[in-house]
Nucleic acid binder design. Structure first.
Lengths: 348, 348
DNA sequence: GTAATTTATCGAAACGTTTCGATGAATTAC
DNA sequence: GTAATTCATCGAAACGTTTCGATAAATTAC
């Protein structure tokens, strides 16, 4: 079993010093073309590749990015954040980083809970996805680590974020309903403490108002504590059970809940979209498999992960001290559950 | 911004040498209880935690495990392997490892394609999930890295594996159909080169034979090249379109294809399970959302990931040189698509 | 043509840890 | 009571890299 060559072997074979070889490896200036080529030749002859551990130690950079998810978000079967993680993975590879994924409780309680990569100084920056307690934000800030929040915002902390254009998504959904002739449009949400859900709700109300559409509070259900399928089921039940004044269209804060709505309504004899039209949000797989297929607002999850990595790398490299806020666009994906395909065909 | 304490600070404060402190940190023997406690006290007073980079360099162990997936498997929306990855993540944390995820093409072509964590010697062992070219297996073997294959097998290579009991799963599914009175049972598969699919097919044939049930080759479709929803749709079409002799029950090699089958059959006026009963395999989310809900064979994906990590850690620690083969159990999950709930109630 | 500047290369120190061999103290063997 | 063994601790080297300051050579400035 041959030993891995080290930078020393390269230096010796090239007849140069360690430092010069290092300069070449790191693409630094002030190396003559001639030496540069000689070194490169030797490197490729020897199949040399610098070892991470030596590098990290000397450069004080681990080459890793931490990705933190709350246990809550992690264990949900719907892989919304998983998808964002995959996006970070792909982007990180381009910039030669690794992504270390871990989950944490909602707030910092004990040293026990602290991700090992933070304790071991094994990441150069951190991405946090989804709703999380601000104690975590503070903890990471104190350690002077670059930080990006994804699909979550904490005002007043001055943290860079990558967000979803929830407001615009809501607006598109409601506008689509209105253009299709709906005048009684309801909203179903859960966990309003999540800024994304809150914004979808805000976008809904704002659009209804600005279009001067009537709105009854009884068409709205926002008291569910979570956004799972079952919450949608329960929420829509509150609106429809034993009620005569019911909406003809529902904008639901996410696809999981929308699927729950569809289930309840179908079980109770409503036809979708004829009796009740539905639009969800997120464009996750289950919406494509539901019957009828769910009209929804698409969120570019991989891209969000990718942008988060780009931002964090910029911060690590010290290129920017700015607090950035990136809002990723969304678009309506018209399928069957909104019953407005014709409408869609008219559009350009 | 205070600097992180190092082992030196601990040694100084405790009035001991670096080496002694190191012994305590690594729980080595030949340290008096008294010193051990003193060191521990200082460590906790200083909030000291050893840094990965120093450790890796000195110990020649990265503390990382590589997780390799083919791009193919990675990009499939159905998160079968993602789930296994999550299992490895959780288990790795317990043993203080990180999991580095990456994807590769089916075979090694260029140095370009080689995962960076291999080039940089940044993993102590590798887990590969799913079907992969044997050039990868060879490549990793040559580097003397512990290797585990998950849901894939390559005979003759002497590689440790963690597998699914596909044969037993198939047997349970078919037996369940037969006990429910079915005599015309078909099989739908795709990508028979994947050992798991091949075994499900083998289990199917074997069980049909051993129970002396008739079998017509026209009830079988195994020529699809992949196992996505659309392949199920196409495969079942071949069996049913313009045919009079059709099966009353279908064992489908995975849930995605099963959902495709359901879609085709429903579109063509068949009632499920009354006209055609269906059992899938994998127990992924989409099966729970289909209508009717899919009866399927449950695979413990997180657990598979967890076992893989345990095995690889044993190998890294040098506790075992054995080539192990772990077969994880499966069990039938009876829902609506097989139409045999009563039958199920009779069972013990 | 000398001084000042830039360029190319190098040597040595530093990063934080583990580990090996040495050393002296304490214990056991008989 | 001496020799052999075990125990507790230590110092120094080693792991593979980057980086800083030094040095000499080459270039530019005037």
């Amino acid at each position: 079993m041959k030993k891995k060559p080290t930078i020393k072997d390269v230096a010796k074979k090239a007849g140069l010093s360690l430092s010069t070889v290092s300069l070449v490896i790191n693409n630094k200036t002030n190396v003559s073309e001639e030496t540069r080529n000689k070194v490169k030749k030797v490197i490729s002859d020897l199949y040399y590749h610098p070892q991470r551990s030596g590098r990290s130690l000397a450069s004080k950079l681990s080459g890793n990015i931490g990705f933190i998810l709350t246990e809550d978000h992690f264990s949900k079967s719907e892989p919304f954040y998983t998808r964002i993680f995959l996006g970070t993975e792909i982007e990180a590879r381009k910039s030669n980083y690794y992504v270390l994924l871990t989950t944490v409780g909602f707030t910092v309680k004990d040293t026990q809970d602290i991700p090992r990569f933070l304790l071991e100084s094994n990441v150069d920056g951190v991405i946090i996805a989804g709703k999380i307690g601000s104690s975590w934000i503070d903890y990471i800030r104190e350690r002077n680590l670059p930080l990006i929040l994804v699909d979550f915002e904490k005002s007043g902390k001055g943290v860079s974020t990558v967000l979803i254009d929830n407001f615009a998504g809501a607006k598109q959904a409601v506008t689509h309903f209105v253009e299709g002739g709906h005048q009684k449009i309801g909203f179903i949400g859960g966990d309003l403490e999540h800024p994304s859900i809150a914004e979808r709700y805000a976008g809904f109300r704002h659009t209804i108002n600005s279009l001067s559409i009537p709105l009854s509070e009884s068409w709205i259900s926002i008291s569910e504590p979570d956004t799972q399928v079952v919450n949608g089921y329960r929420a829509v039940k509150k609106i429809f059970q034993n009620k005569s004044d019911v909406p003809t269209a529902l904008f639901v804060a996410n696809d999981a809940m929308a699927v729950g709505c569809i289930r309840y309504l179908k079980e109770n004899g409503k036809r979708i979209p004829d009796d009740v039209a539905i639009v969800g949000f997120d464009n996750v797989e289950m919406g494509f498999l539901s019957e009828p297929r769910l009209t929804t607002v698409n969120v570019h999850r991989e891209e969000i992960g990718s942008i988060a990595v780009q931002r964090i790398v910029e911060m690590i490299k010290g290129k920017t001290e700015l607090v950035t806020k990136t809002i990723t666009p969304v678009e309506l994906v018209v399928r069957e559950s909104c019953g407005l395909k014709l409408q869609n065909q008219n559009t350009d």
